[in-house]
Design a protein around this nucleic acid. Structure first.
Length: 491
RNA sequence: GCCGCCUUAGCUCAGUUGGUUAGAGCGCCGGUUUGUGGAACCGGAGGUCCUUGGUUCGAGACCAAGAGGCGGUACCA
């Protein structure tokens, strides 16, 4: 036994569904977080950070039970036998925070949050068990202007990201329109009806993936997928299916056209007009804020899968086209969304507190931006000061400091290997240049700067390595006080 | 959760009807060049052929179970 223990080596492996991030991805993340935070700040939203853990009962209806304590969330039992769980979004912690501090908050309470959220689910491509979400919400207002502000924020965050700029569309809908429609075709206002409603909403949510034909099956008897798995449908009649599908087709290029089309379809009942009037208000506020129909459109086919929305919902789509490593076109699609959820805080307070918000995932966006960056930024590492004579480290440190003081990313080689290895190191780090001061330079009071980017370009024509090395191209030697200007010349 | 496909070197993969010592390209390390990365040439390290069990004189290959990965689908507060 002890022998086994002695020889035990843990296998170095990453937990499934989690990822290591570094370099370009991490920098993109920081850039995105910074861009979003400054948009929120500019609009007067306050930052708020809540703990990663919440008591499980605060997170929602899926409470840990004896058999499946980790269903959906990562949960563990505290000393006092209370279940706590990692947050799966920023909205539930917000509801808890508002309920707990309700009397002291200026209402409407507007805050933003950013950070990791965790979901204990099967990971997939682009779907991880830990990812970063950015979230902004307004709690305590049922004014549709608050919804319009959320859409405006979403648009401005997109615009603030240079790689996206205007290549996005925000699709807006209102859950109440669908409610009106479903009530019209006779879906009951009870538990069974809610269940059926849920199936309809999830079916519509799949329009982009399954197409109208697939959604038609899901609205009717059900659908069998390619793997032979059968999904039970909503059981609507063919006529009702057609009505629902017609509703999803009412999206027009101009927001006002869509509103007219919806009016025609839903009629002028009180519930229909009140929802449509709010959308009109939102349209007007977006217009005045400079958000045109191309960047934010009314699109009845987007519904959001989640059950808790009670009013306007929206989804932000990146329309940018890129290609993957195999040259196939990739669409990024939905990166986030939100809407009105008037019931969430009620779980704690007992009274309904209206709220609206939106959130989007940073991780996929960051991966995309990093992909752009790695395509054209090669020699973007630090300038490397070679450490050729260990007893003269002080002068190497002084040179690196001087470069940094002038805004140039610079480091001293910290290893103990020879010059050749140091050059390889600099190459691998994508250093634009190396600074060389060995015995020769030191005695002559000079410094040599080698332009690695230029050298690498010239190396394409290498035929004779001996001559190449003798000529030592792409490097210059000058007096020590010329260091800064020589390095600057590289950029 | 359900269905399908896959698993051989760090990576991408080849490996004949089951047959001796399991290969390639790239990468890595070293040398040609003791102060110069990238080209070229030479050399080297690196393998639990996913695991366990079975069939067989003999298994990387065939069979079964399990694990992991990928894809689809469902769920997603």
């Amino acid at each position: 036994m002890s022998k086994n223990k002695k020889n035990f080596r843990p296998k170095a492996r990453r937990v499934k569904g989690f990822e290591d991030r570094s370099g370009a991805v991490l920098r993109s993340e920081q850039q995105l977080l910074g861009a979003a935070a400054s948009v929120f700040d500019a609009h007067g939203f306050e930052p708020l950070a809540t703990p990663s853990f919440e008591y499980a009962d605060a997170l929602g209806k899926f409470l840990p039970d004896e058999e499946r304590p980790n269903e959906g969330v990562f949960a563990l039992e505290d000393d006092d036998r209370q279940w706590m769980a990692l947050r799966y979004d920023h909205t539930a912690p917000l509801a808890r925070f508002v309920a707990q501090n309700y009397d002291g908050l200026a209402k409407p309470f507007r805050r933003y949050a950013m950070g990791s959220v965790w979901r204990n689910e099967k990971p997939g491509p682009g779907r991880f068990r830990e990812f970063i979400q950015i979230d902004a919400d307004t709690v305590g207002s049922k004014n549709p202007a608050a919804d319009a502000e959320m859409i405006l924020l979403a648009a401005e965050v997109m615009r603030a990201i240079p790689a996206i700029s205007s290549n996005f569309t925000i699709n807006i809908n209102d859950r109440r329109l669908l409610d009106v429609l479903l009530t019209d075709i006779g879906i009951a206002q009870n538990e069974a009806g809610d269940l059926q409603k849920g199936i309809v909403v999830r079916a519509i949510d799949k329009l982009d993936r399954l197409g109208e034909r697939g959604v038609e099956l899901l609205l009717g008897e059900g659908r069998k997928d390619e793997s032979g798995d059968f999904t039970k449908g909503a059981g609507l009649s063919p006529a009702d299916i057609e009505t629902v599908l017609r509703f999803t087709r009412t999206g027009c290029d101009q927001r006002t056209d869509t509103l007219s089309a919806l009016q025609g379809l839903l009629g002028t009942s009180e519930s229909a007009s009140s929802a449509l009037n709010e959308l009109k208000l939102i349209d007007n506020l977006l217009e005045k804020s400079g958000i045109n129909s191309q960047q934010a459109r009314f699109e009845p086919s987007i519904v959001r899968g989640l059950g808790y929305y009670t009013g306007p919902v929206f989804e932000a789509d990146i329309t940018l086209q890129t290609t993957d490593d195999k040259g196939r076109p990739v669409r990024f699609g939905s990166v986030g969304g939100g809407g009105r959820y008037d019931g969430l805080v009620a779980r704690f307070k007992g009274v309904e507190v209206p709220a609206t918000g939106f959130s989007f995932g940073i991780s996929r966006l960051a991966a995309m931006l990093a992909g752009f960056a790695s395509k054209d930024e090669h020699h973007n590492g630090p300038v490397v000061v070679l450490a050729l004579e260990p007893e003269h480290m002080d002068s190497y440190f002084a040179m690196a400091s001087e470069l940094r003081a002038n805004g140039i990313r610079a480091e001293v080689y910290m290893g103990t290997s020879g010059m050749k290895a140091q050059m390889k190191y600099a190459d691998k780090r994508n250093a634009p240049a190396v600074v060389i001061v060995g015995e020769d330079e030191r005695k002559a009071g000079t410094v040599t700067v080698k332009n690695l980017a230029l050298g690498s370009k010239m190396s394409a024509e290498i035929t004779d390595n001996a001559r190449w090395r003798a000529e030592r191209p792409a490097q210059t030697t000058d007096k020590r006080d010329q260091l800064l200007s020589m390095v600057k010349a590289v950029f």
